[in-house]
Write a protein that binds this DNA or RNA. Structure first.
Length: 754
DNA sequence: TGTTAGAGCGCC
DNA sequence: AAAAGGCGCTCTAACA
């Protein structure tokens, strides 16, 4: 292995919320710094302008590129032939930021850690923060003194140009390699690094958006929202002029439905605290001076028969100048008089009688204008109110759904005038979205996605949105490859439960089985399967319902939910749920045993720390997966029933049950994504005719030219299903298949099984 | 004007 | 006996 540490400094223009975006028309690479293993100092190139900008060269003998947040650098030179050649000959990367996160078991404190905070942990130097100050002040990289920038990247002359970001990154890398070996994590890290290359490829390729389709859907949904909004208006009572009812306000909604006091503001008069009278402004007026020295407003004076001005009320006459320039004119004096009543914004309160009363368990943490708790106005609450005399439940829930879809996935303009919504991320030049796939942002080692989040696109059964994700090729095909029941299979692998593995091999329908294992029904698995299938059976609906309850039960159990909560979700009795849990544990005893082992391991070697937020001492512990992946757990403030027994803090059983499964699922997908990427590299993306473009926890999206789609589908399925080979890297032999379903279509909505 | 918390909800 | 896991985005309301 020969490594080369590499860092790129670019112009920092923001494009689609991405700082230093390679898609910003004005951005370019300002300098590269690098150091090849064994060099006694760093090298660099400085580009004087955008026409001088260049890619880095990667010598043939280099086998490893080392960087910090290296996806940033890779995106800038993803088309660099030298980088492509490097990957083709099997070159790998090491991203110190990502490794730091993995070495710490994805502990929250190590999410996206900075080079500055990481370097000192490995004997590195503090960064020159002069540069950061300049960047923060909005100075462009090209306007920073090149000498300063070079010092920053590769170290000062005094340091022999063997420091800076490059020197620090090298120190971190060498320390991390050592630590990773000690922990048995090297292989797991290599797998993650290829996964990082896979998501770099996906971000680079981006998603093609059918803007005509998007515009059509946007128009249609907006029209529907106007209609829903108009229907809702009929239910708004006559309100004070200044109180404009807002169906988006939870305060307004809760008070309208459950009764309550809404505070609003309007301009009104107010008492002067000094006088107790209503506060007024003062006015200056020219008054006539009367014979007793008092004054009178000029227009109040009337003329006497002799032509002199007099005060008609008192009969006093106005004084006149007897000499001087103004001789003969009435005497005047400037007088302060009370003016208009002053107003200011003040709180007013309007009481809604309410249509119905809320349950105590619907109370939120917020309060209305009178200090009473507001109630939940979530979809679940509204739908529970259908028969409570609230006349607008249906149209309100329709309105909320439309709002959600339009504002999150299309376009919306906030009160501050800012545009929001997924479509704001579309690059108008080619109608493509380059989303982020984040590797250092979850506690379970799963990926996350943002700007925009393309891991929460509404499903086909809920919305047509997925139709806007189309192929970049004429008559092209979108491909989605999903692992079936990934987390159940992972649970089988990790727990090694005999029955679970057997059921997975036999492709058992787990939801039907969970119905069958309940003694009270007295039916076999085969019988349940038949009843659920047989639409003509008189009890068909009943058995379907039982299967649905079992399905909800399955998911809830996977997350460690207790009997009470599961009962509330499924509509079953608590005792019934308890029986089902007992039956489940008897059927799959290996799961119980595994969960106990994880808990035991986590609690075996703990360190203590003070948590200022929760004002107490807590524990942290780790569990390591068979792949070598490390999982960090911390204890939390105890629940009330534990406090009653003197327990102050405890680890979360639900977290301990879930992280290993969720994390290993993520690890497998990222691993096979890495293999997919290697395959795509080997054939130059099918000669530029197929592109990896997204991954969502248990699936991968590919955009394919029609000519190669059959081959792409076959290859993707084969590679993704070779999870047994992937596990073998870690010395783990598995006995269950990881079946992958491949679907294709003209867009991500209209997908059909291959 | 900008930041933050809470509620709610989209996905796996 | 006893704990539904992980994300990111939009909006409102409160606060500085």
């Amino acid at each position: 292995m020969v490594y080369m540490v590499h860092d790129t400094e670019t112009q920092t223009g923001v494009f689609k919320k991405r700082k230093g975006s390679p898609w910003h028309p004005d951005n370019y690479i300002v300098m590269h710094g690098w150091k090849i293993q064994g060099d006694d100092k760093c090298s660099w190139t400085y580009c004087k302008d955008r026409y001088d900008a260049q890619w880095v060269d990667i010598p043939e003998h280099v086998t490893l590129l080392v960087g910090f947040n290296y996806k940033f650098d890779m995106l800038w030179q993803w088309a660099n032939p030298a980088l492509k050649a490097f990957f083709k000959r099997g070159g790998r990367i090491w991203d110190c930021q990502y490794v730091e996160y993995l070495l710490h078991g994805q502990d929250q404190r190590f999410h996206y850690c900075s080079l500055t905070e990481t370097a000192p942990r490995y004997g590195g130097t503090e960064k020159i923060d002069e540069i950061k100050v300049l960047w923060d002040a909005g100075v462009q990289t090209s306007d920073i003194n090149p000498d300063l920038l070079i010092d920053y990247t590769v170290g000062t002359l005094e340091e022999g140009r063997n420091g800076g970001d490059i020197g620090n990154t090298e120190k971190i890398f060498l320390g991390q390699i050592k630590r990773a070996k000690e922990l048995g994590m090297i292989k797991a890290i290599w797998s993650r690094m290829d996964g990082l290359c896979a998501t770099t490829e996906m971000e680079y390729n981006g998603l093609q958006i059918d803007m005509e389709e998007a515009a059509a859907q946007f128009r249609d949904l907006s029209a529907q929202r106007v209609e829903a909004s108009a229907s809702l208006e009929e239910f708004v009572p006559v309100l004070p002029e200044e109180l404009v009812f807002n169906w988006g306000s939870r305060v307004h909604k809760s008070c309208l439905i459950f009764g309550g006091v809404v505070k609003y503001r309007k301009q009104d008069t107010y008492p002067d605290p000094k006088t107790g009278e209503l506060a007024r402004s003062t006015l200056q007026q020219d008054h006539y001076v009367l014979s007793d020295g008092s004054t009178i407003q000029q227009d109040k004076a009337t003329q006497s028969p002799s032509g002199e001005l007099v005060d008609p009320e008192s009969g006093l006459s106005v004084l006149y100048y007897l000499s001087g320039k103004k001789k003969g004119e009435p005497k005047t004096k400037k007088v302060k008089v009370p003016g208009d009543y002053k107003t200011k914004y003040q709180d007013f309160y309007y009481t809604f009688p309410g249509y119905t009363r809320g349950y105590p368990h619907w109370e939120t943490k917020s309060f209305d204008g009178a200090g009473n708790p507001l109630y939940s106005t979530s979809g679940g609450t509204i739908s529970a109110l259908k028969h409570s005399g609230v006349p607008f439940c249906e149209v309100l829930s329709r309105y909320e759904d439309l709002n959600k879809e339009i504002n999150t996935y299309f376009l919306s303009r906030g009160k501050d005038g800012q545009l929001t919504g997924m479509l704001t991320a579309v690059d108008q030049r080619d109608n493509r979205i380059h989303h982020n796939l984040n590797h250092c942002a979850t506690v379970t080692s799963r990926l996350s996605s943002d700007n925009p989040n393309l891991q929460n696109v509404p499903r086909a059964d809920k919305s047509n949105l997925k139709r806007v994700f189309t192929s970049r090729f004429k008559d092209g095909t979108m491909v989605e490859a999903d692992y079936s029941q990934l987390e159940v299979v992972v649970q089988g692998v990790l727990t090694k439960d005999y029955n679970l593995l057997k059921d997975l091999r036999n492709k058992i329908d787990f939801h039907c089985k969970r119905v069958a294992i309940q003694p009270k029904y007295g039916v076999s698995y085969e019988e349940v399967l038949a009843l659920v299938k047989d639409e003509d059976h008189p009890d068909h609906a009943l058995w379907k319902k039982r299967r649905t309850a079992a399905k909800i039960f399955s998911f809830q159990r996977a997350y460690g939910a207790g009997a009470v909560l599961i009962a509330s979700f499924t509509g079953m009795e608590v005792d019934e749920v308890k029986e089902l849990i007992a039956a489940d544990e008897a059927t799959y005893p290996g799961i119980v045993k595994f969960n106990e082992e994880v808990e035991e391991r986590v609690k075996k070697d703990v360190t203590y720390f003070f948590d200022p937020t929760n004002q107490g001492t807590f524990r942290r512990g780790f569990w390591q997966a068979p792949t070598g992946c490390m999982y960090h757990f911390r204890s939390w403030p105890a629940q009330d029933w534990q406090r009653d027994r003197g327990i102050e803090e405890s680890f979360s059983p639900t977290e301990m049950k879930n992280y290993p499964i969720q994390g290993t699922g993520g690890e497998i997908v990222q691993g096979t994504c890495g293999w997919l990427w290697r395959h795509f590299v080997s054939n130059d993306n099918y000669g530029g005719r197929a592109f990896l473009c997204n991954t969502v926890h248990d699936c991968v999206w590919v955009d394919s030219h029609p000519d190669v789609v059959d081959q792409v589908c076959a290859d993707v399925k084969r590679i993704m299903e070779s999870v047994d080979d992937w596990f073998r890297q870690f010395g783990v032999e598995i006995t269950v298949p990881f079946p992958v379903e491949v679907e294709v279509g003209p867009n991500m909505l209209e997908l059909k099984h291959k």
